[in-house]
């Protein structure tokens, strides 16, 4: 099940996605999280943030949910001093540090700080959060801005940099290519899809912030298509993310071109899902005649 992601050897391709796994503490109540390929921790900014007003969660039928949390986090210094120490107690392998910001300087400063953390194997730069204004997604919807962030963070770290991309764009390939040309070592896609729900009895949006990021099984086909497009157009490894909730989805993502796979919303409804997928993968590989997972990466493109 081993895969090589940006020079990092992972035991398996299964990675909980940022924002659905905190810093690993909560899910450790349910299973030993050391079975994970890696984990991407909660999106971290320079300052501590509360995020958006509540309600910031909405049900979307059987297929997904909307969140408008808006990057609640304790801030980069607290993460380096406290959360990383707690995390290292529960998880012994290299982690993916998810970094967000509201300016190029903020991205640079946060990445420089997280670069000094030994347990960080990859820095995942979030330029795709749909729930904050003048930051996050603003950098991920314009190829030039995306390239600028990439360049800025590459200057301050020797660790591999993965840019996390937004699906809320006309042409994700142009953004992906801009990041790659600016030096990104990998790409992660997709973040949540901007969505909305209305409470028809109250005649008001369910989410206090009106819109939020839609995620869950419902976005899987969209994510798969985008992963396939980007993997076809770029040479750097792609982490497939969006609606993955079963071992079958992991295989599908990898066949579309993903080197590793992030699992997001599914972690929130079934806390055991990542472990269940990892446990299921060997027998599923056998059924499908797959000897090594790395052999199927982008197989539909060949």
């Amino acid at each position: 099940m081993k895969v090589n992601l940006c020079g990092l050897e992972l035991d398996n391709p299964v990675i909980p996605a940022s924002g659905t796994f905190g810093f690993g503490v909560e899910h450790s109540q349910f299973y030993d999280i050391n079975c994970l390929g890696s984990l991407s921790f909660k999106g971290t900014t320079r300052e501590a943030r509360y995020g958006n007003p509540t309600p910031r969660i909405a049900e979307c039928g059987g297929y997904g949910m909307i969140n408008a949390v808006g990057l609640q986090n304790p801030g980069i210094d607290a993460v380096c001093e406290k959360q990383m120490k707690v995390l290292s107690h529960f998880y012994k392998k290299p982690v993916i540090a998810n970094i967000s910001g509201f300016s190029i300087d903020e991205y640079r400063e946060c990445c420089a700080k997280i670069d000094r953390q030994e347990q960080v194997g990859i820095i995942e730069v979030n330029i795709s959060c749909p729930n904050v204004h003048n930051g996050g997604m603003a950098f991920g919807t314009d190829p030039k801005a995306a390239a600028e962030v990439t360049k800025a963070v590459k200057e301050v770290t020797t660790k591999p940099v993965v840019m996390k991309l937004s699906p809320n764009v006309t042409d994700i390939v142009s953004i992906a290519k801009a990041c790659e040309e600016a030096g990104a070592d990998g790409l992660c896609l997709i973040n949540t899809v901007l969505g909305m729900r209305i409470d028809i009895r109250r005649r008001k949006p369910v989410i206090a912030n009106r819109y939020g990021g839609y995620s869950g099984a419902g976005i899987f086909p969209l994510a798969l298509r985008m992963v396939n497009q980007v993997a076809n157009a770029c040479h750097v490894p792609v982490i497939g993310c969006g609606g993955v909730s079963r071992a079958e989805d992991v295989i599908e993502m990898m066949m579309a071109g993903a080197t590793a796979v992030e699992i997001g919303a599914a972690n929130l409804v079934n806390p055991m899902v990542c472990k269940e997928i990892i446990d299921r993968l060997p027998s599923l590989m056998k059924e499908l005649g797959i000897e090594h997972l790395k052999d199927i990466i982008g197989i539909v493109n060949k």
Binding site: T20, F21, E26, K42, Y50, T54, I57, N267, L268, P271
Partner: peptide
């Protein structure tokens, strides 16, 4: 009471100040 996502602390959807 707040609208919750996961119910066990991972999603921080129900945070209050």
């Amino acid at each position: 009471e707040e609208r919750m996502g996961c119910g066990f602390g991972a999603c921080v959807g129900c945070t209050i100040e």
